[in-house]
């Protein structure tokens, strides 16, 4: 069970990068079909883009933003000699639950502008509710994985690990949302 939440005790570096790449490629193949847009460090939206590669672009932006902010956090808060390959590998493997979210997204209905105007008349099916709960659970799992990736790669412990991780994740979320917003304007 602990391996599911902290595989980085045994897997990191190039091995984690390779495993993470396999998960990421499968996720990116499925994403355009289930309209899964992973458009920020933690964010997921069901959205139809004009190009299939927009799904790849937003996912890459989210991950690179995460790696960038982790590196800044490592310089600011860590006393250890961290390796870039550990941050790159563990963060990519920590995003493995996105594959499950991309599959679950097939069971989610799409919200259109007219639905938002009449939200009180919009009904979710039982499967859609289960899918929504599963997505929330997968996101929690991903946050736990990202936290353990942060702890192991940067060797930060205790309360310092918690508050610096929250700050790091918040910065990654803001940075990725900002870059995605301007990139999508350019891509579409």
């Amino acid at each position: 069970m602990s391996f599911l939440f902290n595989p980085f005790h045994k897997i990191a570096g190039a091995k984690a990068l390779f495993m993470g790449l396999v998960f990421a490629i499968i996720t990116l193949i499925i994403a355009p079909f289930s309209y899964s847009a992973f458009d920020s460090a933690l964010g997921f939206h069901k959205a139809q883009f004009e190009n299939w590669w927009s799904y790849t672009a937003v996912n890459c932006i989210s991950w690179i933003s995460l790696v960038f902010v982790y590196c800044i956090a490592a310089i600011l808060f860590s006393k250890t000699k961290f390796r870039l390959v550990d941050i790159v590998g563990t963060t990519l493997l920590a995003r493995a639950p996105l594959l499950i979210i991309a599959i679950i997204a097939f069971y989610l209905p799409e919200l259109h502008k007219e639905d938002i105007q009449h939200l009180d008349e919009f009904h979710l099916s039982f499967i859609a509710i289960i899918a929504l709960i599963s997505i929330v659970l997968c996101t929690i799992w991903m946050v736990a994985l990202l936290f353990n990736a942060y702890r192991v790669s940067l060797n930060i412990k205790g309360n310092k690990a918690i508050w610096t991780f929250i700050l790091t994740l918040l910065c990654a979320e803001i940075l990725s949302t900002f870059i995605t917003y301007y990139s999508l304007t350019f891509l579409n």
Binding site: F8, H9, K10, I11, A12, G13, K15, A16, K79, T80, K81, F82, R83, D86, T90, V152, S153, N155
Partner: peptide
């Protein structure tokens, strides 16, 4: 030790 590189480095730290 069948552990990851950063885990061993953290033990050493």
């Amino acid at each position: 030790m069948k552990l990851s590189y950063p885990t061993v480095r953290n033990i050493l730290d």
